[in-house]
């Protein structure tokens, strides 16, 4: 894929991105390109800035006080830190999934329709609503489990199902990018497997950037891999290369250390 193609589709490009929490610098001049339509894994030890980098991509960090960002983050070629960017429109196309599943205390279908209803003042017909709910839930492979209880409160689902729902909730807005912050860390092995299967299912249709502390997971599901250490992006390449032939000594130590 050429550079021009990257920018015309919705990849993510970080240019010299630095971020401070007060006086503490959490990101140091991160520059890289996340290719569109693939799954990129973001790995690194705890506290290295993975979450911070992820949250830069839809400007979630700004909700905290005393955060200062420098540099550019381009999504689909547009610098999202430009003055004319509306956070509301941005978040529509760049969705985020959190460490702990956070369904809203509403019914399953209300969770799915929530985003759409915020944006379109107009009412959707019942059949349109049903269609949207079904297609979103099918896409995350949750439809068969919950199709008989769409009116049930989402907070009563199993954690794994909740997390799937949190992914499904983003889809009706037709996002280009999905950011996931350790989406499996609250789940058991089975749940993790289910989410991984679902990710594979989504591959190609969305640009996915997923933080994980599970090296096995990174190697199983990601096409490319980014390794971070102390706020620096140390290495970024095809997953097989990062794991098997790391260019950087630090990546090698980390990858091997984890494998023992």
């Amino acid at each position: 894929m050429t550079e021009a193609a990257d920018n015309s589709t919705f990849g993510i490009q970080c240019d010299d991105l630095s971020l401070w929490y007060g006086s503490f610098q959490a990101l140091y001049n991160v520059s890289t390109q996340i290719k569109p339509g693939i799954i990129s894994g973001l790995i690194g030890p705890s506290g290295c800035g993975k979450t911070t980098l992820l949250r830069c991509c839809n400007r979630m960090n700004e909700r905290l006080g005393n955060v200062r960002t420098q540099g550019r983050v381009l999504v689909g070629g547009k610098n999202i830190y430009d003055a004319d960017v509306s956070l509301i429109e941005l978040r529509k196309s760049v969705g985020m999934v959190f460490q702990r599943p956070n369904p809203l205390p509403l019914s399953i279908s209300a969770n799915i329709l929530f985003g759409l209803q915020l944006h379109d003042g107009r009412r959707l017909s019942r059949s349109q609503q049903a269609e949207i709910v079904e297609s979103a839930l099918t896409e995350v492979m949750l439809w068969d489990d919950v199709k008989d209880r769409l009116k049930m409160k989402a907070t009563g689902l199993q954690l794994e199902q909740q997390q799937k729902l949190c992914i499904a909730r983003l889809l009706p807005l037709k996002p280009a990018v999905l950011l996931m912050d350790e989406p499996c860390s609250a789940l058991d092995a089975e749940g993790t497997e289910a989410i991984e299967e679902l990710l594979t299912n989504l591959r190609g249709r969305y640009t996915i950037l997923i933080v994980t502390h599970n090296m096995g997971q990174a190697s199983r599901i990601s096409d490319e891999c980014l390794f971070m250490l102390n706020g620096l992006l140390v290495e970024h390449g095809p997953t097989s290369q990062v794991f098997l032939k790391p260019r950087d000594k630090r990546t090698e130590e980390y990858v091997e250390g984890r494998y023992g």
């Binding site: 956070l87 509301i88 978040r91 959190f98 956070n102 205390p105 929530f114 915020l118």
Partner: peptide
């Protein structure tokens, strides 16, 4: 009201006021 509810809303592009009206106040 847990912060995660608000984040869930912001992430589908809710304004603060929409977040408050639809999720924070009812809870």
């Amino acid at each position: 009201v847990p912060r995660s509810f608000r984040e869930a809303c912001w992430n589908v592009g809710a304004t603060r006021w929409q977040t408050i009206r639809t999720v924070v106040l009812p809870n």
